[in-house]
């Protein structure tokens, strides 16, 4: 039930964004985020963006994974 998926913001209209998930567009409330802009990735859960996805941290995790797995 705590499922959340990374979604990319494509348009913002007030506190509602159009987000794209694997080619599908949905509406998402931005009410729980301090700030968000077009092209940001957010975690979408039950119609709300609950956190911004930190793209630098994602790269860093992948780098660490490669380091452990060598």
């Amino acid at each position: 039930m705590c499922l959340g998926i990374p979604a990319k913001i494509v348009k913002i209209n007030g506190s509602i964004a159009d987000v794209e998930i694997g080619g599908i567009e949905r509406k998402a409330s931005l009410d729980l985020l301090k700030e968000a802009k077009v092209d940001d990735y957010v975690i979408l859960h039950a119609g709300f963006a609950i956190q911004k996805l930190d793209e630098e941290e994602a790269k860093e995790t992948l780098r660490l994974l490669e380091e452990i797995g060598i």
Binding site: M1, C2, S29, L32, H45, A46, F48, I50
Partner: peptide, 8 residues
């Protein structure tokens, strides 16, 4: 739901 859901 847990804290993931309750803020919404």
């Amino acid at each position: 739901g847990f804290e993931t859901t309750s803020p919404s």
